[in-house]
């Protein structure tokens, strides 16, 4: 796992939108999706179309998106169980007794969750971690939190590499791993990893203080986004909001 997140390093109009604009746009978009009544199916079709178009414009390869969708798996399982355990009137599909509200609920979880994940993938695939941090800083996330985030992102690859090296060392000494043994070996290694990480944290703090750090991190972002960039970036979310409002009116 590198500190680059899911970044797909190409140039596209989506990559060029300032991070704070993308963050706001993403948030508004997902909010619109979440507040759309599940039964208004066409609205989700529109959302999906908008996302597919945005992914295409951003030149993010489809396999990147589909691979990352795997994080959703536990909730897909949950959603698929819903029609069997939910209450209310039952319908019979292919000989199975399913709950009507359960089927709708499963659709609700799957559709909204998937759209949310794809939107988030779009953000992380088109925004370098440093830009994201600068964007959060511009959106007035507390400075301490931005600092912690920035250190975490910086050292993610270092700590993951440590972890990986320890696994290689374990396996190259002929370790095969039964169930209980596996847990024990992993846990012992993780303990050592924490001491390493913590001591590195101490050294980094020493290095910072050596260079005059007194409690305030320098700002990452220099210039804000122009009005044009805001209009441009948030356009997709505005469309989503319009769709959500329309869907609510249709369903009520």
């Amino acid at each position: 796992m590198t500190g680059d997140g899911l970044l797909v390093a190409v140039d596209s109009p989506v990559h060029r939108i300032p991070a704070q604009v993308k963050l706001v746009a993403l948030f508004v978009f997902v909010l619109a999706v979440v507040s759309t009544p599940a039964a208004v199916f066409w609205a989700f079709g529109v959302y999906a179309g908008m996302l597919v178009a945005a992914v295409a414009v951003a030149k993010v390869p489809a396999p990147v998106v589909s691979r990352r969708l795997a994080v959703e798996t536990p909730f897909i399982v949950f959603a698929l169980l819903l029609p069997f355990v939910a209450t209310g009137p039952q319908v019979s599909v292919l000989g199975l007794e399913l709950s009507q509200s359960g089927v709708l609920g499963a659709w609700n979880v799957l559709a909204k969750g998937t759209l949310g994940v794809i939107a988030a993938i779009l953000l992380s695939a088109t925004t370098a971690p440093r830009e994201l941090l600068a964007g959060l800083e511009r959106l007035r996330l507390p400075a301490t939190l931005v600092a912690i985030l920035s250190f975490m992102v910086r050292y993610l690859s270092v700590v993951s590499d440590d972890l990986h090296r320890m696994r290689v060392a374990r396996e190259s000494r002929g370790y095969m791993g039964g169930r209980v043994g596996h847990l024990k070996a992993v846990a012992g290694g993780v303990g050592a990893l924490f001491v390493r990480s913590f001591e590195r944290g101490e050294r980094v703090h020493l290095a910072m203080r050596s260079r005059g750090y007194t409690g305030r991190m320098p700002l990452l972002s220099v210039q804000g986004a122009s009005r044009g960039q805001w209009m441009h970036g948030v356009a997709i979310s505005v469309v989503a909001v319009v769709v959500a409002v329309a869907a609510r009116m249709v369903s009520s």
Binding site: A147, I148, M152, Y155, L156, L163, L193, R200
Partner: peptide, 19 residues
């Protein structure tokens, strides 16, 4: 202790969550 320590702890938690 500095934000670095918290950041490193976060990186550690993140890494370990992948195990």
């Amino acid at each position: 202790t500095g934000p670095a320590l918290a950041g490193l702890t976060a990186a550690f938690v993140f890494a370990v969550q992948m195990v």
